[in-house]
Design a protein around this nucleic acid. Structure first.
Length: 661
DNA sequence: GTTCTAGAAC
DNA sequence: GTTCTAGAAC
């Protein structure tokens, strides 16, 4: 919203099924607000009876003419239903959406219990109505024309939203953007919605969690038909050691959530799914609760009830990689998940496993590619099984840890680390060679060791424009006009197209270090030097302007040859920042903070790189994470956003800022 | 990496 | 009509 046009009226579309609390929301705001509001409720608009959309529109228009702001109190669940109300917006009138995305059970039980509800939705019919409505639900996006969208998933969120509107005086405005959204709802295609309805009609559960997972799953199933390059990598894994090995559930769930949180940023857009066969699974509910407490993205880490060998055919969830909680001999049998997976995969899995390993130590994992002849591969779309061995706490079994949880927790952590790193190696291999046919991809790397560049250094081909940095790094003395400083190991230059007020590059001078992927343990010293030189420039810039805040880091996949460290101020106030790729390359996890790279190279000998898919993601504010429909709107929001930076960025000195004076 | 531009979105 | 994006060429 430009400053020149003063906004003082708001149309708030409340979005949610019956029982989600739309009427309560508007009533609560109207009771305490200083701003004049009208509530347009389709259920009572016709002299206390239900009316039509047209009547609502007409009444909204007349309320706006009187100078009131309005609540549109009808379900508004799909885009088409909302479109005409969005058009009420214009000069001086903003349109907001408040999404009441409460669990279906809550809405159903509320609308069943309701006696005085104006909509006259009674008894058992309510459940059917709510369910049907939720199936055609389309969550709103900022690009529908809303200047602001706010998501509420529970009563606490609702309270925050209510207070936001209560506090809003007659002339106040709210920041634009999309707030509080938990899952990144990728483009929903009509075909997918249809497909979703079909699968959802299966006898399976009606729980919110399963429904969500199912919807996500189907988006991906659909994608995989379009071509394997579009697949959303998904790892389904059972809880390790908590079944037969009797590991304590509280501690195990802590470790699962901790490790998932650690790995999610590393695996690009890939997803992790904890699977259990039984509905009342204690471990699933513990993990689910802890993950939501930590605000972990529920679209990328969630729990799922089903048979891990039949997730696609029976659960509608396509996972290209599954984990097996195995035994040390890597043999079939023993019951539980191990028996089930070996049985479903047939002899192919045993043969393929033998090629990789004969035995496994606790805490370790081994990645096994499945041949396309394997039933799990062609029926379920599973390309890799990762065997994991967890700690054994079962006193009735040999070699148990005799209740030593210090050791047990350490080994369990190690097991999940090995598992997720194995998954990461699958994701990276496939994104590195996206165009290869399935057949050749399969014969490739399955081990945890990096075998990719040992044989062939099929060095990437670089276009001429991409060689500029390399040339400067090799001959800094020939480029005096642009080089700020150089030594034997590094060159510092201003980025030719700075994406922020201050943006310099620290180039490595070593030949053959083209990008982050080439970095190994032996380059640690060099990376440290680059980091220190970067910090020195930050210090200089902050001496000139103490309000500048910096991040230092690398692009996961650079466009230009020669390893270069970006030192960039976080205002992103620059005309050269023009598109989504620019923005996401510095503000998504595609940007690998130098401190993290250093840590990873030190501990694991190489740095993790994120997928290029991240560059296509939504445009979100680097501070408050609100989403915006296009670059100009994003930039105008970012100019004025004073929110604190996200927790992750604030930690481990990823952000370099002067203390406030 | 940028520039240019067709055509989608508004 | 204008604004904005995305893809091709460099």
């Amino acid at each position: 919203m430009e400053d020149s046009e003063k906004t003082n009226q708001i149309v708030v579309l409340l979005i949610g099924p019956p029982g989600s609390g739309k009427s309560t929301f508007s009533d609560t705001v109207m009771r305490s607000s200083l701003r004049p509001w009208s509530r347009i409720c389709q259920d009572i608009i016709n002299n206390g009876e239900a009316g039509t959309k047209a009547q609502c529109l007409k009444m909204a228009l007349s309320s706006l003419k009187e100078g009131n702001s309005v609540f549109i109190d009808r379900c508004n669940l799909d885009r088409e239903q909302r479109s005409e109300f969005v058009k009420l917006g214009g000069p001086g009138i903003e349109v907001h959406a408040v999404v009441l995305e409460l669990p279906a059970q809550v809405c159903i039980s509320r609308s069943v219990k309701r006696t005085g509800h104006e909509g006259n939705l009674q008894g058992g019919r309510a459940a059917a109505v709510v369910n049907r409505m939720l199936q055609s639900k389309e969550l709103p996006k900022v690009n529908e024309g809303f200047s602001r969208v706010m998501f509420c998933y529970n009563d606490a969120d609702v309270e925050i939203a209510v207070n936001t509107y209560i506090k809003l005086g007659p002339m106040d405005t709210l920041p634009s953007g999309c707030f509080g959204e938990k899952k990144s709802d990728t483009k929903s295609q009509p075909g997918i919605m249809k497909f979703f309805k079909k699968v959802n009609a299966l006898p399976a559960s009606s729980s919110n969690e399963a429904t969500n997972a199912m919807r996500k799953a189907n988006e991906k199933t659909e994608n995989s038909r379009l071509g394997s390059a579009d697949i959303v990598h998904t790892l389904a894994f059972p809880s390790i050691s908590t079944a037969d090995f009797q590991f304590d559930l509280e501690q195990a769930s802590d470790i699962i959530v901790e490790k998932a949180e650690e790995f999610l940023p590393k695996v690009g857009t890939a997803r992790l799914v904890l699977v259990d066969l039984s509905h009342g699974s204690k471990i699933l509910s513990l993990v689910k609760a802890k993950a939501s407490q930590k605000n972990i993205d529920s679209a990328r880490f969630f729990t799922f009830v089903g048979d891990i060998t039949k997730l696609r055919s029976e659960g509608g969830l396509h996972c290209n990689v599954i984990a097996n909680a195995t035994n040390w001999r890597l043999k079939p049998g023993g019951g539980g998940v191990n028996a089930a997976i070996f049985k479903a995969a047939g002899p192919d899995l045993e043969t393929a496993t033998r090629v990789r390993a004969n035995t496994l130590l606790p805490g370790k994992a081994v990645v096994v590619p499945l041949p396309s002849t394997c039933p799990l591969h062609n029926a379920e779309g599973i390309t890799h099984v990762i065997h994991v061995l967890g700690p054994n706490m079962n006193p009735n079994r040999p070699d148990n840890l005799n209740n030593d949880y210090t050791k047990g927790c350490k080994t369990l952590r190690e097991a999940y680390t090995s598992l997720f790193e194995g998954f990461l190696s699958v994701v990276q291999d496939q994104s590195k060679f996206p165009k290869r046919s399935n057949q050749t991809a399969l014969s490739d790397s399955g081990s945890l060791e990096d075998t990719r560049d040992s044989g062939k250094k099929m060095s990437k081909e670089w276009s001429t424009w991409a060689l500029a940095l390399h040339t400067i790094a090799m001959h800094p003395e020939r480029h005096e006009n642009i080089v700020l400083e150089f030594s034997d190991n590094i060159v510092v230059i201003n980025d030719q197209y700075p994406k922020a007020r201050k943006h310099v590059l620290v180039l490595a001078r070593q030949e053959s270090l083209d990008g982050l992927e080439d970095v190994r343990k032996e380059n640690f010293q060099l990376l440290q030097e680059m980091h220190n030189v970067g910090l020195k420039w930050v210090d200089r810039f902050q001496n000139e302007d103490a309000s500048l805040i910096f991040r230092l880091g690398y692009h996961s996949v650079p466009s230009m040859r020669q390893l270069h460290l970006h030192v960039i101020s976080q205002d992103f106030d620059s005309d050269s920042l023009k598109n989504k790729k620019h923005w996401n390359s510095f503000t998504s996890s595609f940007f690998r903070d130098s401190v993290d790279v250093l840590e990873e190279v030190k501990s694991q000998g190489k740095a993790n790189v994120a997928s290029e898919d991240l560059l296509k993601g939504e445009l979100r504010c680097n501070r408050c994470r609100s989403a915006h429909p296009n670059i100009p709107k994003l930039k105008s929001h970012v100019r004025s956003c004073r929110s604190q930076f996200p927790e992750h960025v604030l930690q481990n000195s990823r952000l370099v800022a002067r203390p406030e004076t």
